[in-house]
């Protein structure tokens, strides 16, 4: 069993991620059968002290992913960093293979050049982390950056994203779709996408490095070490495979995060009037789309630009594909 650790400032994150990821609740079902053991650790000093002393071995054993949240404009950065160093030391001792993600949070409060400020923090934190590979994201609850970070994190713990991608690509072809995106149901984070239709080269461009992974561990290791050694710009670059295919559509690069954010917001609006969001179909000037349940634990979004394709046809295709994806998913999580 792998566990995720939340630290420092996470209540705001979790509130946005949906009711399942709750502060009190430690077990989160992600994709139904993948149980994440979440440790949302309060950031107050007294708690921090106990994590690092008496509870140290309990907390830091069998950690799959450590997510540590810093405030971008902290009152006491040296104290934050000293706790962080202790955490990293414990992690190295008890779970040396864990992936480490650092969120530099409340980026919306930075006045002036946010990019430069994040870069400075990134270098500082990488320095503090010693040999441990870390991936740094700037986040804020006021835009889609949080979804981008979380999708990337979640991606490292999904066992067979590549196989899913392959099947989504086949499914996209069957629907004459430009793109098919699979979301986790409760969090609405992106799990996998179809690969863009590419006529020119069978090899993906180098930036798609994370998509080449066949096992989650390899993918994570790659992504992380890549994050450290390469120039900073690639870190903030596209993370999800297919995000920037060499196709002529030139779709918006932040569309996945923004979609997660939009759908979560709509779900929230529905719940406020005691309704439950279920499915959405759109024929807009720009595209045709259907967003519908794929499996028990996932939603699928099909984007079509061909104006002759009707939403009814897409819905039938989803119905026909359900069984297959249900099987795929149970295979993947069971392993």
């Amino acid at each position: 069993m792998r566990s995720l650790i939340f630290s420092n400032n996470p209540a705001s994150l979790t509130s946005r991620l949906g009711a399942t990821i709750d502060v009190e609740q430690n077990h989160v079902r992600f994709l139904g059968d993948l149980i994440l053991n979440l440790w949302d650790c309060g950031g107050q000093d007294s708690f921090m002290d106990s994590y690092l002393s008496t509870q140290r071995s309990t907390i830091f054993q069998h950690v799959g992913v450590l997510i540590y949240v810093f405030e971008v404009e902290s009152r006491d950065m040296s104290k934050d960093l000293s706790y962080y160093r202790d955490c990293i030391d414990s992690l190295r001792k008890f779970s040396p293979t864990a992936n480490v993600f650092l969120l530099v949070h409340k980026m919306d409060l930075v006045a002036g050049d946010k990019g430069a400020q994040l870069e400075k923090k990134r270098r500082e934190l990488q320095h503090e982390s010693g040999e441990v590979g870390v991936t740094v994201f700037g986040t804020s609850i006021y835009d889609e950056s949080l979804y981008k970070a979380w999708s990337r994190i979640v991606h490292t713990i999904i066992p067979n994203a590549t196989i899913l991608s392959k099947h989504l690509t086949t499914f996209a072809e069957a629907c004459s779709a430009t793109e098919v995106i699979l979301f986790e149901r409760t969090t609405f984070l992106v799990i996998a996408t179809s690969n863009p239709v590419q006529a020119e080269s069978p090899f993906p461009p180098p930036r798609a490095i994370t998509s080449g992974s066949s096992t989650p561990t390899a993918s994570t290791a790659l992504a992380t070490s890549n994050g450290i050694s390469s120039p900073p710009s690639s870190l903030s670059g596209t993370v999800i495979p297919g995000a920037e295919g060499g196709d002529a559509h030139k779709l918006n690069a932040t569309r996945y995060e923004r979609t997660s954010e939009l759908v979560k917001a709509l779900k929230h609006s529905c719940s406020r009037v005691r309704e439950e969001f279920y499915a959405l179909e759109m024929e807009l000037p720009e595209f045709t789309a259907v967003l519908d349940e794929m499996t028990k634990n996932t939603y699928v979004l099909i984007i079509v630009h061909d104006p002759t394709i009707e939403t009814a046809a897409l819905k039938i295709n989803i119905r026909l594909a359900r069984q297959k994806f249900e099987e795929l998913q149970s295979d993947s999580v069971g392993s």
Binding site: A248, L251, N252, R255, V263, C270, R272, E286, I303
Partner: peptide, 27 residues
């Protein structure tokens, strides 16, 4: 409120998946 939010969602979705090659043809 729900209708307002729904409209807002639809307004935001359009540009997200706008294709520079295919979208103009649709119209």
């Amino acid at each position: 409120n729900l209708c307002c939010d729904y409209l807002k969602t639809l307004n935001a979705f359009g540009p997200l998946y706008k294709s520079s090659s295919a979208s103009p043809l649709r119209l």
